[in-house]
């Protein structure tokens, strides 16, 4: 088995969650890599769309962001933000959103806005973009985050995008009748959410990653009793990812 990087494993782990027939909304960064990977390897029959308005592009070249002209090429239709974002919550569609984040809590709420005081932040991030909308309206969210204690926190510095909110049925009581986080893909494993508490648990760890490492890097307790080891990437998966999806290593590290 050849070696592989964290970003490669994250893109493949997320790609494996996408199925033919899914309607997938992808954000910038690793989300884009996972979307393009899924289209090439796991789910050529899935439809990918972007908040900017590009619906089902051919993805012959990896878009670097959702504003890349590559999301407008070979599409079924080119529209704009309101059209694309209204599809996210359309009542007849089952949509999955792929979102990166800087911080996450045990209920899958996300922060992409800032660290420290909101008005005088220690670190400012780009902001919601379409993430708050996707988290509110999509049928499900898969998020990406580096597995570090400072990112898996008890309390977010700012809640940009609502996940399971405070657990249980609290999301529904907010007035959001559908949606919620499905999975969190990190550089160490994949987390999912328990019913009915909606608390995060460890669903799988990547090959060779000890459970203890994951616990040490998570800022709150997680159930690890059901953890399985993920399949390592195959040579063919890595070849497609490196040679076809991101040959310039724009997002791959």
């Amino acid at each position: 088995m050849t070696g592989y990087t964290d970003t490669e494993m994250m893109a493949l782990a997320a790609g494996r969650l996408i199925k033919d027939g899914d309607i997938v909304f992808a954000g910038t960064g690793v989300s884009m890599l996972a979307a393009t990977t899924a289209k090439r390897i796991y789910a050529p029959g899935a439809v990918f769309f972007f908040e900017t308005g590009g619906i089902d592009p051919d993805l012959r070249e990896l878009p670097m962001t959702v504003g890349d002209p590559r999301v407008m090429s070979g599409t079924s239709i080119n529209t704009g933000l309101i059209d694309a974002l209204s599809l996210l919550g359309h009542r007849k569609l089952r949509t999955i959103a792929l979102l990166g984040t800087a911080q996450i809590d045990r209920y899958g709420n996300l922060n992409t806005t800032s660290l420290g005081d909101y008005h005088r932040p220690a670190t400012r991030f780009p902001g919601s973009g379409g993430a708050c909308d996707a988290a509110s309206c999509a049928s499900g969210v898969i998020s990406f985050v580096k597995h570090e204690k400072r990112r898996f926190v008890e309390k977010l510095d700012y809640l940009t995008s609502v996940g399971w909110y405070r657990g249980g049925d609290s999301r529904r009581r907010l007035g959001l009748p559908r949606g919620g986080p499905i999975a969190v893909v990190t550089n160490l494993g994949v987390m999912k959410f328990d019913d009915p508490t909606k608390e995060m648990y460890l669903a799988c760890r990547y090959p060779g990653v000890p459970v203890e490492t994951i616990l040490e890097n998570t800022g709150f307790p997680v159930d690890v009793s059901r953890t399985v080891e993920a399949e390592p990437p195959s040579a063919e998966e890595l070849r497609i990812l490196r040679k076809e999806v991101d040959p310039q290593h724009l997002i791959l590290q």
Binding site: G89, C132, L159, T160, V162, Y165, G175
Partner: peptide, 14 residues
């Protein structure tokens, strides 16, 4: 809109 319910995008004024 339904977007943003429960978030700090709605709770905190800049």
């Amino acid at each position: 809109s339904k977007s943003g319910l429960g978030s700090d995008v709605i709770r905190l004024e800049g």
